[in-house]
């Protein structure tokens, strides 16, 4: 078991009160597993990713714990988390294209980062160059400034840098969403390749793009309004989802392999609830086509089949 997260609650402090961006989320990721995390924007998936890396104000840890390789992560203490950054939990952030300091040579910056961990740049250089080769970047980029690279090159550079110390968990946050459709696949494949080669032990891939997850993820977790609503293997989520929200999410996608023109895309009517004052009971209630009286009570995340968890009262157990 690489990572296990229990009852994680993270709130944003705002002027209007606390926004419950993450309201009791539990899951685990096995060694070698790529877990996808899907959901609409604002459902808390990026917050979840960031919480495992570095929780800083205005985000606040309310409760919950995370254990990585048998060691508890000090999620609420950003300073103590430094020790786990990069080597324990690393991240390819959403803003990967602007993640490198524009006024530093890339190699110099990496050397500084390594020196801060008492590691020698020159010792790691051969490995670094090998990995650059893996993502098809020339070793010459190390002598360049970030603005001399294209957006895609910068993103691959960040991928190499983030995984340089072979992290136990890599959080990849919306890495494909800013890219052309034509290269999305290639980048997704690259992520899988990093895992296959053991450069990254396990991975949490956050995206709103289920097609990407279907391509590389072993398991997929679906989030809605700060909670996990369903988690199962990628195949099951795509082919046999049980939660009404997941079903709508899947049906709102063009069918994989199908021609676009044949089925009209359906959006999900309505808006997700405000997380400032989330309603009691099931949070999907207001938009759910299968709502019943029972939904006034909050449905727990229950195992409905081996490795398949759903948070909905409608599920026949």
């Amino acid at each position: 078991m690489s990572l296990s997260v229990q009852e994680l609650r993270v709130y944003y402090q705002t002027l209007h009160g606390e926004v419950r961006a993450l309201d009791g989320v539990s899951f685990s990721i096995a060694d070698g597993e790529i877990m996808g995390l899907a959901g609409e924007s604002g459902c808390g998936k990026t917050t979840l990713g960031y919480s495992l890396v570095r929780l800083s104000p205005p985000r606040r840890l309310v409760s919950g714990r995370a254990v990585l390789d048998g060691e508890e992560l000090p999620l609420g203490d950003p300073d103590a988390m430094r020790r786990f950054g990069w080597k324990g939990v690393s991240i390819v952030p959403q803003f990967a294209m602007s993640a490198l300091n524009p006024r530093r040579r890339i190699g110099g910056m990496i050397a500084e980062l390594l020196a801060a961990r008492k590691l020698r740049y020159l010792e790691l250089l051969p490995e670094l160059e090998r990995r650059l080769d893996l993502v098809r970047l020339p070793a010459a980029v190390l002598a360049m400034y970030p603005f001399e690279l294209s957006g895609g090159m910068r993103q691959r550079m960040v991928l190499v840098l983030s995984t340089l110390l072979n992290p136990s968990l890599l959080v990849a946050d919306e890495v494909t969403s800013a890219l052309d459709v034509s290269i999305q696949r290639a980048v997704a494949q690259l992520l899988a390749e990093f895992r296959d080669r053991g450069l990254v032990k396990s991975m949490l891939v956050i995206t709103h793009d289920l097609a990407v997850l279907y391509q590389i993820a072993d398991t997929i977790a679906v989030m809605y309004a700060g909670k996990l609503v369903e988690k199962a293997s990628a195949d099951v989520i795509i082919r046999a989802p049980r939660h009404p929200y997941t079903r709508l999410l899947i049906s709102s996608l063009p069918e994989i392999g199908a021609r676009h023109a044949r089925c009209r895309l359906k959006g999900i009517p309505g808006q997700p609830p405000s997380l400032l004052n989330p309603p009691l009971g099931c949070r999907f209630r207001a938009r759910c086509p299968a709502v019943s009286d029972q939904c006034g009570e909050e449905p727990p995340l229950r195992e409905v089949a081996a490795g398949h968890q759903v948070a909905c009262w409608q599920q026949p157990c």
């Binding site: 952030p93 602007s98 524009p102």
Partner: peptide, 20 residues
């Protein structure tokens, strides 16, 4: 800025982030 947040995410010490 993004680069500062990335450095922090990689566990860079505060001193290094401030230097940048």
């Amino acid at each position: 800025a993004d680069y500062a947040r990335y450095l922090e995410a990689l566990g860079a010490p505060q001193r290094l982030v401030r230097k940048h």
